[in-house]
Nucleic acid binder design. Structure first.
Lengths: 140, 140
DNA sequence: AAATATGCAACTTTTGAGGTTACATTTAAC
DNA sequence: GTTAAATGTAACCTCAAAAGTTGCATATTT
């Protein structure tokens, strides 16, 4: 969802967009969008201003925002993490396996992020424009 | 969890293990393990027999089972999938963006699987044995 | 001053994974 | 054969995380 919102903002190319409009584009609730925007603000991707007829806009060029950054900013629950087993009955094998898997999964995580870093918002924007052949800067 | 169970089975090197024992090792419930074993059976990783004093064992060498296969067999909800937005109010931009993101995420998925395919159970087993210096084949 | 947007708190809803219980069925072992 | 031990499976519960909802204070443009 974060990627989708950022893509819309990139599409609007600096023009501020309200959370209501973004919500309509992603087909969800404005408050959900605002919560997301807070995260994207602290990550330094967007700038938001309060007040009438304003909203949020990208504060970095789309080329400088890649998927790995977005992933790190947004992700809460890592896809490759072991469920925190309580190990009350400390089976040695189980314990060692956990330690080993943590290593493996950490490696997978970094590989994933390296992969995500290859794509940035500009790439995605190009894809969007190509795939539906619409002109830039024409809102809605 | 699937990886953990399969690692234990690999550790036992063909010796059948009951779901109760596996559950103890992962610190969970036997039924959960059995549910997982059904999936691993249809994926062709393990063989299970009913009856007294038997259980499950690997039916492939650990070298031939890699993390990508396990991932595909087990995973239900893809980490990089768009939430199925209903698009009742068909905003053209939103629609195109979704189409583009599907492409991007599919590419990420395949990259992830390519990465996971680099590690197999034998690798993990070696890590386990190295990291806690225990001899093979000594159960528990 | 009024209209419009965000910030934020509190609550509900939804969804999926995991856990639990219970029981029929199968099979090795005695 | 009988029995003990194991799986297969259904039906439920629990729990956490994400999303959605409502309401209102606050800020800012016009």
């Amino acid at each position: 969802m974060a990627v989708q919102v950022l893509t819309v903002l990139a599409y609007k190319a600096g023009e501020p967009v309200t959370s209501t409009l973004l919500a309509a584009s992603v087909n969800t609730n404005p408050v959900v969008i605002r919560r997301l925007l807070l995260v994207l603000q602290t990550a330094g991707f967007v700038e938001t201003r309060k007040g009438a007829s304003v909203g949020s806009r990208l504060c970095q060029p789309p080329q400088r925002i890649d998927l790995a950054q977005i992933y790190r900013a947004v992700e809460t629950a890592e896809p490759f993490k072991l469920p925190q087993r309580s190990m009350d009955h400390p089976c040695a094998v189980g314990h060692c396996i956990q330690a080993a898997l943590i290593q493996v999964f950490a490696a997978t995580e970094t590989a994933l992020e390296r992969e995500l870093a290859k794509t940035n918002l500009a790439h995605i924007l190009a894809l969007v424009e190509k795939s539906c052949g619409q002109s830039r800067q024409r809102p809605h």
